[in-house]
Design a protein around this nucleic acid. Sequence first.
DNA 1: AATTAAATTGATAACGTTGTCAATCTTCGT
DNA 2: ACGAAGATTGACAACGTTATCAATTTAATT
Lengths: 337, 337
Amino acid sequence: MVEKHKKPTLKDVAELSGVSVISASRVMSGGPNISQNLRRKVELAAKSLGYQRNRIAGSLRGQTSDLVSVILPSMSNNVFPNIMDGLSESLQDTPLRLVLGMTQYSNVKEEDILRDMLSWNPAAVVLAGLEHSAETRALLATYDGPIIEVMDTDGEATDIAVGVSQIAAGELIARHFTSRGYRNVGYIGAWGERPVRSRKRRIAFEAELEKLGNPIKAVRICEEASSIMIGAREMERLLAENEHVDAVFFANDDLALGALLYCQREKIAVPQDVAIAGFNGMEMAQMISPCLTTLRTPRFEMGRMAGELLCQRIEGTLARKQSVHELPVTLILGETS
Amino acid sequence: MVEKHKKPTLKDVAELSGVSVISASRVMSGGPNISQNLRRKVELAAKSLGYQRNRIAGSLRGQTSDLVSVILPSMSNNVFPNIMDGLSESLQDTPLRLVLGMTQYSNVKEEDILRDMLSWNPAAVVLAGLEHSAETRALLATYDGPIIEVMDTDGEATDIAVGVSQIAAGELIARHFTSRGYRNVGYIGAWGERPVRSRKRRIAFEAELEKLGNPIKAVRICEEASSIMIGAREMERLLAENEHVDAVFFANDDLALGALLYCQREKIAVPQDVAIAGFNGMEMAQMISPCLTTLRTPRFEMGRMAGELLCQRIEGTLARKQSVHELPVTLILGETS
DNA sequence: AATTAAATTGATAACGTTGTCAATCTTCGT
DNA sequence: ACGAAGATTGACAACGTTATCAATTTAATT
């Protein structure tokens, strides 16, 4: 590891190519209205000097950066990585770069991360969910660029929201269970219904069942975070207390898979004795036998659309007003219901 | 969305608090040797003005930024998200921020992303794997900060490598199969063995079997990307051509799970008729029945260690010389072998 | 050919913070 | 009380690019 020489600047490139610094800048930053002759001279000089742009300097002068702040709860399940992939794809032919901060679902962390992110003058901010602390909201109010909230459309968007309707999802599964003839319906959630969008979904699920004359019979919401193991345990408990339950909707696919494994171990026939439905539509859940009935959320598409919308805003081709973009949540009929 | 006023600068804070600009700067950036009196005055003024730091300006003057470039192939499987979580955790109490670029395993994309990332004067660069194009290597040679390569330790590190030994992994599973009495061993890979580390693992697997007097009997490596479905299909084909195969090692857990599902469907007893082992140690694979035998790679720990090492380098508490940090790959004995 | 319009290039200073050195103040030791 | 050492504060200019306006050149129109 040898010490590197002082990096060449545009001044060096300009001198070597015999043009002004600002002309060299225009060439290296892809500006318009450059003659072929001048462009070739500058590119040749830059290459021979090994010139690398200084985006920091450009961002200071230009008053904004090509950084997109992405503040998400975690990368530990497939929801947010899929969103990142979609975001990444829609930004790949732009100079924009994703700067990632993870909150672990903590409001205080979201505030700290957002405050720090704003100090980088980002071109856009992407956040998860529609519910934020007052401090987060105050910070967002000082920000002038596009704010994209992903995941949820059932509430007031700060600026642009891209997601699925938790209410529509809850209603969809309620109608599915009812139309399938299930009359003793249960629900299992975890982690005290954090984030709040899972509670929105459950409430809508219950309300729709009620409207269909098929009121919910059992609800279990534990405090531990979701996992396959928790799904199995909670299914065991719910069935122990409610032996007539014939269908259960789970807050996510991990829980549902855990329940399915529990039923397989206990020789409980699925869906004949009890039907199971999950939420998110994880790939794995579609491949096992019996494949899981689930509500699929279009996470990649969410990320991609978020990326497209923020680009349009940055380009000025999308109006600077609040908008909500709802993507459909899809019932994936499997073999568990 | 109302137009925001011009943002207050340190000059405004300094004027309001009656100190110099540089003193205000020292307070806001956490510098040492500030009297309590002056600090209180500055903090009060900053708060009343709603001052937000300008990290861009500081990075330009200071010649480096608190950005860490992270260049990974994708977020679509659980390997890299786990690494990101580990990285994120070790950096959470630092001012460092992760800037993410995704290559989709393309050398050209890695070069383009790296070139752009370097123009941000990052504090460190994190890359996946030890194999890079000549252009990527040339770009890294112009960079003076810490370079962390994660995933692999079987090759020449550019600077710091953190990962598992693919060779040790291949040898471990070869010994496992042999000690279990399997004498007709197969291997299934996908995507033409991209990235190259999966070929390293297979070659070591085969060599170790050879050394143990138990030469491999069947190898299938298809061109499609890994998935559960591909695993099932390739298992069907391998068994059709090699009906005596009694154990198969897979390039990853997705493939192994697909094979397991295929065997369950075809009433092939696992592990009695054929044993199955995967690679990566995905959580799901440990929870299903029968739970998968697999080699677990410590991805979260990889990310965390990478984060710790780059911090030490930045602080100057780690020597500026090449180093390789190997984490153990662990045989998770399940019910499939 | 002359005039107008569009394209191209350059001059100037701005962006907001902080590295560095010097000056001043405070504390400690004799 | 004085001198030395350490802590604190401020002055100055630097960092590298580009927003903006003007000047010059080139192309199009009459």
